[in-house]
Structure formats: C-alpha cells, structure tokens
C-alpha cells in the first residue's frame, strides 16, 4: 500500500490544453497522460514546440491564462486534483511540495532584490520562522546547491553572479523547502557546456538526497542517458512512447523515437542533441485525422492516416503506434 502511494506523486490523465492565438483556439496538448513517482527522474523529450513547457506550467498552475487553458483531464498530486484546488491552496503547494526550475537563470531572478531576501521571502511565506532562522535555511539551501560562500552571497544581487551561480540559486529556491516534486524545464540549456554538467550532477544528487520525483524536460540525449530513470517521448502534444531509459535506448519501438535517436545502435555514440527527422511537426491548428506522426513516418500504414492510435501498455512501457518497428541492428 505504501508503495502504491509513493509510486504516484503526480498523475496526469488525458490532459488537454488549448491555446488562444490570433483569433482561434487550438489544442497544443492533446490527451496527455503521464506519471511521476517519488525518487525517480522522468525525462520528457520531444521537438521544440511539442508542448513540453506548457505541460510543465499546467502542473504548477502557472499557465498564462490569457492565452492557454486546460480544457480537459486531471492532474493529480498524491491523489488530489490540482486543477480543482483554489488559488490559495495551489499557492501553498508551490515550492513547498511542487517546485519548478526554469530555463533562463539570467532573467528568472528579480534583479532589484538580493538573493538572500528572495530566498527568505519564499521560505517565510511557507514556514512560520523568524528572519534569522529563515536566513539559516537559505544558507543551507544555497550550500546544498553548492554555491560557494553561501552566507556572504545572501547579500549579492543576481547581476553579481555568473549564469551557473544563478542557476544554483534557482536550485536553492526550488529545493529549500524539500518539495516532493521538482520540475526542471531545460535547466542547463542556457549555460556554458562546462557548467551544464556540474549543474546537472548537483540536481541529480539533490533529487536522490531528498527522494524527489523529478520531471526533467530536455533536448539533450546525453542528459537523458546520464540521469533519466524513465523517458517519455512527446510528439505534437501527446506521449508517443514511454519506457525505462535502458529499454528506450536499446529497443525504441516508435518510429519517431527511433528517428530521434538517429537509429544508432551504440548508446554511447548517441550523445548530443536529438537527431533531426525529415519533415515538420504538423501545425496544431489543423490536426490530422489519423496519427500525428503519419505524414513524416516511413512506416505509415493506411490505418495510420485514418484513425489515431492509443497509448497502450503497462507501467513498464507504453506505446502509441499501429506499426511499431523492431530496431534493425
């Protein structure tokens, strides 16, 4: 029973998100389902614009409501539907239970406050502690994120820190209150290559220390290979394949996944960014009647053009495809 509760920190069922843009509505997330368990890293990969960030923001309840709206589905956190929570209940969960780290650490910190005052403000919104106690917690969080001279840094303004240091501050902000879930949306993309590895390493250690369930959005297959426990592959607003990292790299079944991996059998040679697949993502304004990937798929059958495949499979692996291909090696 305990296992069961732990296993499902976040469960997204049939999530649909509509965007209002240039006078019309269209779905950018189309019936997405996935779950994040405690003490695991789920990597969400997929081409630019497939809806990864929008999905992450909807979990945080931070969709830009003037353009994007959840139209269907549920997002359960420990069995409780986040979409039904009041604004203030949702606010209480943010950063206390569910945290998020954003892509660009340069613009993601308020420039006119010191990092100490940012950290203590967020801590004190959630915890009934005095200012010196909050300050100690802030120092602990910064040290855990391995920011050098943490205590002196409390008085620094964001512009006085390098990009890597700022992302450590973001990690400290997101993990200061020991959240159960951490969402990281391309946390290293904006950083120097040398710093990327350190930040990622620290994030992974933090996740293991706090036994967090982590949803890591990335473009970088090297990152996936290094840190992921499970991988969900997203295409045009839906999950097309989901599997453990080993299975996915060894036996990718969906033609899209195979395309992403470049169909190279050697896992160590698959470092670097996603392989480019010929063709483009269909514009979300006019979804095809059949499989979203059919227009670009070399294995597409007649039925792929006519009806949509469902996401089928067990907890071990899931697939949305009528004609999965065994990998020819």
């Amino acid at each position: 029973m305990k296992e069961e509760i732990q296993d499902n920190l976040i469960q997204i069922h049939d999530l649909r998100i509509s965007i209002y843009s240039e006078g019309s509505y269209f779905d950018v997330v189309k019936g997405l389902s996935l779950s994040v368990c405690s003490n695991e890293i789920l990597c969400l990969v997929g081409e630019s614009g497939c809806g990864k960030s929008i999905t992450a923001l909807s979990v945080m309840g931070l969709l830009p409501t003037d353009v994007a709206q959840v139209t269907n589905g549920e997002i359960l956190f420990r069995g409780q539907d986040l979409l039904k929570l009041s604004a203030s209940d949702m606010r209480r969960l943010r950063s206390d239970e569910i945290s998020m780290i954003f892509q660009d650490p340069i613009t993601s910190l308020d420039p006119v406050f010191t990092i100490g005052s940012l950290l203590t403000e967020i801590i004190r919104v959630h915890r009934n502690v005095g200012s010196s106690e909050a300050e100690n917690m802030a120092v602990d969080a910064l040290e855990a994120a391995q920011l050098p001279n943490a205590r002196q840094r409390l008085k620094s303004y964001p512009h006085e820190l390098s990009g890597g240091m700022r992302q450590r501050v973001m990690i400290a902000l997101a993990t200061a209150l020991n959240p159960a879930v951490l969402i990281a949306d391309e946390p290293t993309t904006a950083l120097d290559v040398t710093v990327q590895a350190q930040i990622l390493e620290r994030l992974r250690e933090r996740q293991r220390e706090q036994k967090m369930g982590m949803l890591l959005i990335t473009h970088d297959l090297a990152v996936v290979a290094e840190v992921a426990d499970r991988v969900a592959v997203m295409y045009a607003g839906e999950i097309v394949e989901e599997a453990s990292v080993q299975t996915l790299f060894d036996k990718p079944q969906h033609p899209y996944t195979q395309g992403l991996l470049g169909a190279i059998p050697d896992i160590t040679a698959r470092r670097g960014s996603l392989h480019a697949i010929p063709g483009r993502v269909p514009p979300p304004q006019v979804p095809p009647p059949g499989c979203e990937f059919a227009p670009r798929c070399v294995h597409a059958l007649e039925e792929c053009w006519e009806s949509r495949p469902l996401l089928e499979g067990s907890g071990e692996g899931k697939l949305r495809c009528f004609n999965p291909q065994p990998l020819i090696t």
Binding site: T107, D110, V112
Partner: peptide, 29 residues
C-alpha cells in the same frame, strides 16, 4: 511580463506580493 514574475509565482508568493512588491519595485526604477 518578466521571467522573474513566473519564478516568484512558482515560489508560492501571492499576487499581491508579486505585483505590489516585486513588480512595483522594478517599475519604480
């Protein structure tokens, strides 16, 4: 529209704090 507004909201700060303290302080420059 600044990115930091999203960070503060993700931190669980109320709209009142985000707007009345952080955005206003930046706007006062």
């Amino acid at each position: 529209n600044n990115d930091f507004v999203r960070t503060l909201r993700a931190g669980g700060l109320s709209e009142w704090r985000v707007m009345g303290k952080h955005v206003l302080r930046n706007a006062m420059i």
